[in-house]
Design a protein around this nucleic acid. Structure first.
Lengths: 98, 98
DNA sequence: GCCAAGCTTGGTCATTTCGCCAAGTAATGA
DNA sequence: TCATTACTTGGCGAAATGACCAAGCTTGGC
């Protein structure tokens, strides 16, 4: 495995390694949302949310499409549930991993 | 899902969101290694590697056991392969996600 | 055309993370 | 016991990340 591939993998992982971005991903699992809706969910400045979404898009987690004034974001990958299940097997308070 | 759970999930994800730590995890997938061996693999100072391992242990990814002078680190979770497969479906150069 | 809503981009500052060095502990062998 | 190897911990400066503000672009309604 090359260093480049490692760095690419790291970029994908980092894109979810932030509370706001993880919450955004969880929200999008139940359907499309526009930026303002996601801001209402995670709080903070709209520009901050927009930048989080750009990062997630570059990593490949989400895709977006413009509808009039609104930009609809959605999950671009159906493996989020698998990913989270894997994380939760480690994150559980009861340490019942694997 | 509470904020606390989100933060715990983020801590688990962050523990692999670094090139050296990801490489360490990949290496441990093929068997136990002591700290010096992992240092040879990822480079940098031994203390840096040790701190990476502490972080990964607190997140639950690895466990360790002392054998004489050596400390053997191993994966504490068998879901790493699943995790990486999920990441690679996004990290591939060919964008063939999902 | 003009204004407001929705979003993105650039800039700056505060916070976090990272990596090395130095110092300390523990086990082994001479 | 003294030196060496293996590892951990604390500390500090450097680099990366995150959050807000301000400014700009685009779309839609009046």
């Amino acid at each position: 495995m090359s260093v480049l591939n490692t760095d690419r993998r790291v970029a994908v992982i980092k894109a979810l390694a932030h509370p706001a971005r993880l919450r955004i991903a969880e929200a999008l699992a139940s359907g499309e949302r526009c930026v303002t809706e996601l801001q209402a969910l995670v709080g903070g400045d709209l520009s901050t949310v927009s930048k989080h979404l750009t990062l997630m898009r570059e990593a490949g987690w989400v895709a977006c499409e413009k509808h009039g004034q609104h930009v609809h974001y959605r999950l671009a990958c159906d493996c989020l549930a698998t990913f989270l299940h894997c994380i939760d097997s480690l994150a559980g308070d009861d340490s019942n991993c694997c």
